[in-house]
Each structure stands twice: as C-alpha cells, then as structure tokens.
Design a protein around this nucleic acid. Structure first.
Lengths: 121, 121
DNA sequence: TCCATATTTCTAGAATAATGGAAATAAAGA
DNA sequence: TCTTTATTTCCATTATTCTAGAAATATGGA
C-alpha cells in the first residue's frame, strides 16, 4: 500500500459525516448497511451521502455489494489495520516501547508479548 | 475526547507533509526531534513546517518542550491510541470479531483473548 | 413495457486549506 | 546591550473540498 493510499484513507475519515458513516459500518460488521439505512440513521441527503460513500470507497475503507436494488455497504477492516500499522511503523525506533505506545503499536512491534507485559508494569 | 478532536487528529494526519512529520516523530520516540532537524530531514521551508507542526499540535498529536533555543517536538502516543480505539469502537456490534478486524480493534474488544484465538481458527 | 424505488452523477457557488517569502519574536552568548 | 540562531506569525495567492437540488441511471416487479 502506497503512502498516497494512507493519505486517502486519512482524508476520507477526516470529515464529520464520513467518520460517522464509517463508525456506523464498523459497528455493523460484515453484515453491513444499505445506503438508505445510513441516510436515515444520519439524516443526510442522498447526494451528499453518495458523495461521501464514494470518497470512502475510493480510499478503500468501504466496499459495497448489491442486494436486489439496494447496495450494502461494509467497512474494510484490513485497510483499517494497515493504516494503524503504518502510523506506528518502527515506533520508538523499534525498541521495546510498550509503556509508551501500547496498545496501538503493539501489533506492529517485534517484541515478544511477555517482554511487553513486563515493560508495561 | 470529543468527536471534533478525532476529526482534528485525522485532518492533521491527512496531509503528505504532516504524515511524514508525524511518522518521523513516532520513530524518534520520547526523545523527539527539533524543528530544524525535521526541516532538514524533509527539506521543508521553515514557514511551511511551522504551519504543519501547529496543526499537529492543535490536534494534540504532537507536543513540544523547549531546550535552550530549540523546541523539541514529540509524538503524543496517548492521542494515537485514543484515535484507534475510537475508530474501532463497538466493532462488529461488540461480538467476537477477531478474524474480521484483528489486530486494530483487539485492544478495544471486551472479548477474552482465548475466545479471540478460538474464533480466529 | 411501464412504474416505483434505490442510488449515483452533474453542477456551481461557498467554504476551507496549503504555500512560502518576508518580517517579527524568543533565547542564549559575547 | 548587540548579535546570532531558532522558530513563528503575517499575508496574499492558489487550489481543493463540501453541499445539496435536479437530472440521470439501475434494478426488480406488475
């Protein structure tokens, strides 16, 4: 994933309406929500919602599958994980840094879990 | 932390130059870097760098401490962790969702680690 | 085929953000 | 106090993004 992809993902999330849409989809999980359901939940005009969904899709944070005449939108969890990993890449120069940046960069850190627990205490 | 604070953090990171600055500071860890060092590393004019650092500070992602006539900039790891937790809050409706959204939302999930391991398999 | 529903594309004005040179401020040493 | 170095603020220009009505498109059912 390229640097510009991360910028796209962050830009997509850096908007009140879009962040709400995204969080709604994260909470909905793999089952997803239709465009209409999202519009109702957030009281957002169709054109505006469609614009924001397209931004989220362009950033790879949201995907859609068709179900009859509705489109079911779902969050792309892999993209989210990649973004978090990128932000915390080589955190603290790669040293054991658990007390500083736990939990966000723990998955990226190449430190055994036992060592992290010890450092945290 | 308010919703607007998360938007501020995401907006701050949603810019090529600022994302580079932030990642540089994450990698530098608690020791931090001076404004001049960042400017040299990224070949960015002083006024531009100062503008971007102020955005990152306003978003709470970066803090500064003075050391003589330089200002040492450091990443605020707590804010990063809060942001990740917010994005993944109540992920998948609170169900055991490890295979879907591990690792980003694992710290936020209220699911015992054993149950997550089982679900992942 | 015709209709109703679901969603997207088009559009343009309004609002917001980025850039970097020049001038201002802040701190430390001579 | 004067000077040097480090950093920020001011400013105008340019570029990008947001909003939502109206029109267009897609799908499934009668």
């Amino acid at each position: 994933m390229e640097s510009t992809q991360y910028i796209a993902a962050l830009s997509a999330l850096a908007h009140d309406g879009r962040l709400e849409i995204y969080r709604l989809l994260v909470q909905a999980g793999p089952a997803g929500l239709t465009v209409g359901e999202i519009g109702d939940a957030l009281a957002m005009p169709g054109a505006t919602l469609s614009f924001h969904l397209s931004q989220l899709k362009h950033a790879g944070l949201v995907a859609a599958r068709r179900d009859g005449r509705r489109l079911i939108q779902t969050a792309n969890f892999e993209r989210m994980n990649a973004l978090v990993a990128y932000l915390t890449e080589n955190c603290c120069g790669g040293q054991a840094c658990a007390p500083v940046c736990e939990p966000a960069c723990a998955p990226a850190a190449s430190v055994p879990r036992r060592a992290q627990k010890r450092a945290r205490a």
